[in-house]
Amino acid sequence: MYPVWPTTKRRPETRKSLPLPETTQAPLELTAATLPQIITPEPTTPITPMIRTFEPPSSTEPTIIVRPTATPTLPSTPVVLPERMIQTSSHRPLLSTTKDNIPSIIKARRLTRIYPVTTTATPNGQCEICKPGRRCSVRLRSFETSDAVFQYAYSHSTMIDDSMQSLLKDTQTATYASPLVWHNSVSPEILQLSQTIMSLYHPSRCLVIGVFTGLGLLGIAEHVDSRGIVVALEHPEYSIYWEKIGLKHAKKKQNSQISRIQVRSTEAIEKTLPRLAANEPNTFDFIFLDDFKRENYLDDYEHSVRLLRSGGLLIINQAFNGGGVLSGSEYMSPEDRAVRNMNIRIKQDGRVRASLLPFSGGTWLISKK
């Protein structure tokens, strides 16, 4: 068992008041004679006043007295800021300016403003690089331009394969009925761009509007799905160049590639294409538009969008029509007006997502929503 310790009850302590000691001194009286001995006298050394001190005025509210500080000395020669820097406000950063003293951010907005079509030409009716009084002419394709930027881009891109190079050589050396020339053929860079895009998803149903010697047609047929087809439309008067030049190169291909191609040239494109759009809407994965009759471009575009499935791709060649869309209205040909109207229509068309590239004479990349 644990031991039990005895507990005692403590009494509550009682505080006893102790008697105060008796003092024999008399109480101190504050008189004028004793006052200096209690209050400490002021020091004899002066105290440096602060910048802000309070002085009791006649009224009840204190008045703040600010000691004037020393005025900074300005340099004798004024500081000259660079011309490209301006101070718009004490709370805003400095902005770089252009030659006409306009901030660069405002200048950029001006460049992105949408101008009417008539303002793309100068008062004389032509663009800045064309001669006055004549139709505008812009040459940007790889075999036409001498611009260093375009030539650098073209020379650093992937080249078309040897079979396409051979077909391009035969296209350049062949003879054609006026007004056709070999320059009307699709450019190598557009063919290479189309092949690169097609290699991403290998479309199964393709449509080529405009065949000529078949450079674009055979290049597109190489990247169609193994079970796909390529439907090609051409005017009867131009189909002879496919039969004379393109078909010879097509026979060098594998039989599986030749069997994919269906060339329809018994009647004009403006008759075949509407019938095809009415019978097979929303069925094509890829469409390449390069109709030599540019006055049909607006109608060709409308039928192409109807034929294209949702998510399909449409590439339109020569959207500048050699620069004619940049000319003044009095210098435009009917083909120039048709191509210009097509460009305006594509921009306003809510069915598609489109980008116009200043590439090889103007190239539209259009995806149907």
Rank of each mutant, 00 (worst) to 15 (best):
W5P: 14
P6L: 07
T7Y: 08
S17E: 13
E22C: 02
T24D: 07
T24G: 06
Q25V: 12
L28M: 11
A33P: 05
T34Q: 01
Q37H: 02
I39C: 07
P41Q: 11
T45S: 06
T45I: 15
I51N: 14
F54P: 01
F54L: 14
P56R: 15
E61K: 14
P62C: 15
P68Q: 04
L74P: 12
L74Y: 14
I86S: 10
S89H: 05
S90R: 15
P93G: 00
L94H: 05
K99G: 04
N101G: 13
K107D: 14
A108Y: 10
R109T: 14
T120Q: 15
Q126R: 01
I129P: 10
P132R: 02
C136H: 01
S137M: 04
V138H: 08
T145S: 06
S146D: 12
S146P: 03
S157W: 12
M159C: 14
M159N: 15
Q165D: 02
S166Q: 15
D170A: 07
T171F: 03
T171D: 09
T175E: 05
Y176C: 12
A177N: 14
A177R: 01
V186L: 04
P188Q: 00
E189F: 00
I190K: 07
L193K: 10
M198G: 07
L200Q: 09
H202M: 14
H202P: 03
V211Y: 07
F212K: 10
F212H: 03
F212L: 09
I220N: 02
E222T: 01
R227S: 11
V230S: 00
E234H: 00
H235P: 04
I240H: 08
W242R: 10
I245F: 03
H249F: 05
A250E: 13
K253T: 09
Q254L: 10
Q257D: 05
R260Q: 01
R260T: 05
V263L: 07
R264S: 06
E267H: 09
A268C: 10
K271G: 03
R275F: 11
R275G: 11
L289M: 08
R294D: 07
Y297E: 03
Y301M: 01
E302Q: 13
V305D: 02
S310E: 10
S310M: 13
I315W: 03
I315A: 11
I315R: 01
I316T: 00
N321C: 08
G322H: 00
G324F: 03
V325H: 12
M332P: 00
M332D: 14
S333N: 09
D336T: 06
R337M: 05
N341K: 06
I344K: 01
R345C: 08
S355L: 04
L356N: 00
L356A: 12
L357C: 01
L357Y: 04
S360N: 05
S360Q: 06
S360H: 07
L365D: 00
S367F: 00
